[in-house]
Design a protein around this nucleic acid. Sequence first.
DNA 1: TATTGTTATACTCTATAACTATA
DNA 2: TATAGTTATAGAGTATAACAATA
Lengths: 147, 147
Amino acid sequence: MSAQEAALGRLWDLTLLLADDSERGLAEHGLTRSRAQVVWQLRQHGPVTQQALSTALGVTARNITGLVDGLVATGFVTREPHPTDRRATLVTFTPQGEARVAAMEASQKAFAETLFAEIPDAELAAFTSTLDHLRTRLRALAAPNQG
Amino acid sequence: MSAQEAALGRLWDLTLLLADDSERGLAEHGLTRSRAQVVWQLRQHGPVTQQALSTALGVTARNITGLVDGLVATGFVTREPHPTDRRATLVTFTPQGEARVAAMEASQKAFAETLFAEIPDAELAAFTSTLDHLRTRLRALAAPNQG
DNA sequence: TATTGTTATACTCTATAACTATA
DNA sequence: TATAGTTATAGAGTATAACAATA
């Protein structure tokens, strides 16, 4: 097995562990991964239309209807009327929803610091740099016909 | 934002890109991620019972029934009688299934080499080493009460 | 006419619980 | 009595297609 194959295997393994861990954390706070993506958009951009969510997440409008239904049922968000377009709704945090998400982000921050606690600064910088390189490389490989 | 938070964010981002890419590759070959995990077990261990798959994948027996149903319907595997236990079935590759999976693994290998092509040996070694450290660390954090 | 969101329908992955056949 | 696998039922995420209300 090449060093490249070994590295990709290790990366996959770490990915699976992180995904499991994060899934568990989200579930404890009453979120699924897909609903968390919606919440993250709200955190970044404030109230948004479902159309905007559909584009941002790369899923169908129908799918967004379902995700928002779930977030409404669990008290994270409400659907508010759009001020100028009566077709659209603005998906908006409830105060409680925003507080719950802020708490989760604090946990996430603490987790990052614990996970990398024993990694020296120089090693962490090198690691991050390699990750950046791979991200760029993968984006280029995944979209070869975009020009 | 701390360097630790930044690193975790980069790692997440790369993870999402890799997951998307791999999902697309699997779909082209007629597999889903979950079915691929079953296939991977067969690759590693040869014919296995559904019970063994249930344990290995950490999902319910009912779930395995569904995944194997899908793999049978798409021609990857068959259910063969267990030689000594008439309750059990042995999930077994079809010749065609094994050939298709071997082709996918070759693609995966080529992908690894392309992805890491521009990374110098020393950087790759350091990267893999950090990944290893994080894997160990995460396993320890995720299972703190296992003794 | 085009867009926003919903209802209708279907497939995949996941779970629990009840059940059959076998051990 | 315990185990291997299935049927029954349910919920989440995803998709297409048809539709209503509005732009």
